[in-house]
Amino acid sequence: MKTSFLDFEQPIADLEAKIEELRFVQDDSAVDISEEISRLEKKSAQLAKDIYAKLTPWQISQLARHPQRPYTLDYTGRIFTDFEELHGDRAFADDRAIVGGLARFNGQPVMVIGHQKGRDTKEKIYRNFGMPRPEGYRKALRLMKLAEKFGLPVMTFVDTPGAYPGIDAEERGQSEAIGRNLYVMAELKVPIIVTIIGEGGSGGALAIAVGDIVQMLQYSTYSVISPEGCASILWKSAEKAPEAAETMGITAPRLKTLGLIDKIVSEPLGGAHRDHAAMAQNLRKALQDALKHVSGLSTSELLAARYERLMSYGRFKEQPVK
């Protein structure tokens, strides 16, 4: 697959195009230019390193939405074995914006649940751009209860612009579906390991993101509202999205500093989309550590720690009332 470059990657794109050209020339040339090619390749890697060393939150949010970024089903094949997708909420429909099912992680049975986006237009529509309706959250809930019944750890993968804002979604109780998940996840008697793999968009993300360990991929984002949404409400202009992204604090390092997530999972140079295999490798390692961490706890210890974590969210001061 040809890498598609983002605006801020233009210098890398130009260089890569030049390398490609040279390779083409070399094929039917007597002169050996392989040295020149390898020099340029090194230069391109260095350029990527430089650009990626100082990404702005807005640039990161574009990376988080990169069309070639690995989605949940790209990881299930690489990290898990025996993945068996289970469908439907048993009440209304099967929501394709959330996938889930049984799988093995290093041989151990687990429940996998994640948002699913589509790559081309047809698939995007099929997956509703990764925006679940209530039946998606209810399917996730059903699978979590199933995991609880059989004592399987739950691993969730978060990647959504948000819950679907549609008439049908409202009619079927979008609010209730999300709220119910928050409630049940707070007391689910099996470990829940959450990874934000792309966009952690508001309540629609949180509805499968309450857990014992919450980790984020290096260039993923997690926010209460999209930068565009925030900008159009508070600045009255969606063009202020870069400012909103900056001030809201949506990137993994910032959220780690604020104590809202536990761990950042490194991405390959140039982002997860450049090398799905390497990304999956890093993520597998992180999941393994996370699982090891929670596996040592008894159910009551696990639930007490989860509750304590949930109660610790928030920043305020206390002053005696006058």
Binding site: G179, L182, Y183, M185, A186, E187, S202, G203, L206, V210, Y222, S223, V224, M248, G249, I250, L255, L258, L260, Y307, L310, M311, Y313, G314, R315
Partner: peptide
């Protein structure tokens, strides 16, 4: 309050 506010959804419900 950024993500702190989102987390209040989980906190209150829990």
């Amino acid at each position: 309050e950024g993500l702190f506010s989102l987390m209040q959804m989980a906190k209150t419900t829990a």
